[in-house]
Design a protein around this nucleic acid. Structure first.
Length: 318
DNA sequence: CTCGATCCCTGGACGC
DNA sequence: TGCGTCCAGGGATCGA
């Protein structure tokens, strides 16, 4: 499941593999995960991939230069005013935004290699290779954005956890009554953190996932920031976590899953105190924690005792 | 503002 | 072996 470290891993790989290459062709299969498939078909051919970087859980393929004939015609038709409004004037930034969702990946192939079952985008490159996007569940997203549209999209997201200062982070977290786990997962608060690294950092900082952000002391907020950064850096170093099938551009699995302290360890012993690791739903996500090391807020503690098991009956159909 | 519920989607795990 | 069912997860959206 690609979170910040996994996306960083893929982005770094692609920076080496495809930066400087020009896109010569675009072939799409399923397109329901794209904002505007026709824009992708129209705008990408002729563009050069200047660089590939990570933005939260997104990859940004920064594009420059040449337009396809169709794009040129399209522009002329719309007139200059409209173009400026949409921020597509000459020299304005353009990028292909790629979110890997749960099962997405982007890798280079030789054009003659057979397509995977869930490969939905093939970008032909000027050296004969293909940059392919594969995503079984299509929880990902792909969008071609430029100028102010691109800038506005990027503004929706919060701080990069690796860059956030102590003051900024504490303010973001302590300024909300929402539960800390929900805040960590909220991309408009902090960009890039998903379920695994939220649980891992909360365990390391000894903070219960159901605590309100506002209830954290300055010291706790700073501990959380430090642990989060430490964990993310280490995970990047180890090319992320491979739970089911995540691999980087070289087909290499990540190794950070071997360092998970709580995620997926429910029922096993806490590596710090030996108590049993528990799992509860917080912010709609399974949250792994140690009830001894991470002291629960009052409300949650009461709830934990009362609530046995709320099973929902599936919506049978078909 | 914050919450939970629901939907999207498919592979894999599990029960029978 | 082969069904059916449930579950995972990020994010959008909607109603409470």
């Amino acid at each position: 499941m690609p979170e910040l470290p996994e996306v960083e891993t893929v982005a770094r790989g692609l920076q080496i593999a495809v930066a400087g290459r020009r896109i010569v062709s675009v072939t799409l299969r399923k397109t329901d995960f794209m904002d505007d498939p026709s824009a992708i078909e129209r705008e990408l051919p002729g563009k050069k991939i200047e660089r590939v970087e990570r933005y939260g859980k997104f990859m940004l393929l920064q594009l420059t230069g040449g337009e396809g004939k169709a794009a040129e015609r399209h522009r002329v038709e719309r007139g200059k005013k409209k173009i400026l409004e949409e921020g597509e004037a000459e020299g304005s930034p353009r990028a292909l935004l790629v979110h890997l969702g749960m099962t997405g990946n982007m890798t280079t192939h030789f054009a003659e290699q057979p397509l995977g079952k869930h490969t939905h985008v093939m970008l032909g490159l000027d050296d004969g290779r293909e940059l392919r996007y594969t995503d079984a569940r299509r929880f990902g997203r792909m969008a071609y954005l430029a100028g102010e549209t691109l800038a506005a999209e990027l503004r929706r997201f919060g701080a990069d956890p690796l860059l956030a200062s102590a003051e900024e982070f504490a303010e973001l977290i302590r300024g909300s009554k929402a539960r800390i786990k929900a805040l960590l997962l909220d991309q408009s608060v902090v960009r890039g953190v998903g379920n695994i690294y939220a649980d891992e950092s909360l365990w390391s900082a000894r903070i219960h996932p159901a605590r309100s952000g506002a209830s954290l002391s300055l010291k706790e907020a700073e501990m959380l920031r430090k642990m989060l950064q430490k964990i993310l850096r280490k995970a990047i170093e180890l090319r992320g976590s491979t739970i089911s099938d995540f691999v980087d551009g070289d087909g290499l699995a990540g190794e950070y899953q071997q360092h998970h302290k709580v995620y997926g360890r429910d029922g096993q012993k806490c590596l710090r105190c030996g108590a049993k690791i528990k799992c509860m739903l917080v912010a709609g996500r399974s949250s792994h924690y140690c009830a001894v090391c991470q002291r629960a807020p009052r409300v949650a503690r009461r709830k934990e005792k009362k609530t046995k098991r709320t099973r929902r009956v599936g919506t049978s159909k078909k």
